[in-house]
């Protein structure tokens, strides 16, 4: 199976001083798959996302996407290689309009940014991409709003849209449902389900209902190590997982 994996992380290690935050983690994502990563707080999920996206340097291990080795690449080069991410803490351009946010994302993936003399506003291609992104995530009605003034759920959608502009082959979603009410969560689940057709997804999420609903495969991260990996029924039935993570909570 690993020969055909879209994304392959092998033996990832990250130390902070004496602390082993990521302990020889192996993770694969297949084309079209949603692979969810769960684990208690402090299990090293965010560290792992930062290692994969390149915001933190790896101590050991290798990363490849579609046969391209990523470990030596800077964050922006990994995006070019097809790996895009969202942020756990919403990271958008708060004082710009939604449209300007999307235009900036579109510009990153449509030719060079080293163009100095032509007005960007005159580029219809960027505008088209921006509008398409807005439609995809359902923000087409609020293009003129200042991003920072949008409700939380809409800002999360914008965050996803900014990552989508890269037309990624692997999308890292770092707790997309964080801080959302039930209504927004449902919309986000629908959005992620819809994205499955465009990109493989590595989903870090606390919302168990969403995870069981979306994920083809689930890996459990505990103390920086992958405890086990499998489909929803495997995870639900795994005694150690119940002990360390699910506790006594019963899931349908």
């Amino acid at each position: 199976m690993s020969a055909t994996s879209l994304f392959e992380a092998k033996g990832l290690v990250k130390r902070f001083g004496g602390l082993l935050a990521t302990d020889h983690v192996d993770i694969t994502v297949e084309p079209g798959e949603i692979h969810a990563l769960i684990g208690p707080n402090g299990a090293g999920k965010s560290t792992l996302v930062n290692l994969i996206s390149g915001l933190l340097p790896l101590d050991e291990g290798s990363l490849s996407l579609d046969g391209v080795e990523l470990a030596a690449l800077a964050p922006h080069q990994r995006v070019r290689a097809g790996l895009s991410r969202c942020f756990q803490v919403t990271s958008v351009f708060k004082s710009d309009t939604v449209l300007d946010n999307l235009l900036l994302a579109a510009q990153a993936h449509a030719g060079s940014s080293f163009r100095f003399l032509s007005r960007r506003a005159a580029e219809d291609v960027l505008m088209e991409t921006a509008l398409r992104l807005a439609e995809t995530v359902g923000l087409a009605d609020v293009l003129g709003r200042i991003a920072g003034t949008l409700p939380h759920g809409a800002q999360r959608k914008l965050d996803v849209a900014l990552a989508l502009a890269a037309r990624p082959r692997l999308l890292l979603l770092d707790e997309p449902m964080a801080g959302m009410g039930p209504e927004d969560s449902l919309q986000m689940v629908a959005l992620i389900e819809q994205l499955r057709a465009q990109t493989a997804i590595l989903l870090i999420e606390h919302d168990m209902d969403a995870v069981f609903q979306l994920a083809d495969r689930i890996s459990v991260l505990v103390y920086g190590r992958v405890l086990t990996s499998g489909d929803a029924s495997h995870i639900k039935g795994h005694p150690e997982v119940q002990a360390v993570y699910l506790g006594t909570e019963a899931h349908a």
């Binding site: 922006h76 895009s84 990153a108 080293f114 003399l117 890269a166």
Partner: peptide, 29 residues
């Protein structure tokens, strides 16, 4: 004034406002 409204100018202002996100969107910051 012209560069400020060009692609380069927009990218530069994006970096000023949110450098991490710009790198995560693929900009050579």
């Amino acid at each position: 004034s012209r560069v400020a409204v060009s692609r380069f100018g927009h990218a530069l202002m994006g970096i000023r406002d949110n450098e991490t996100r710009m790198a995560a969107m693929g900009y050579p910051v």
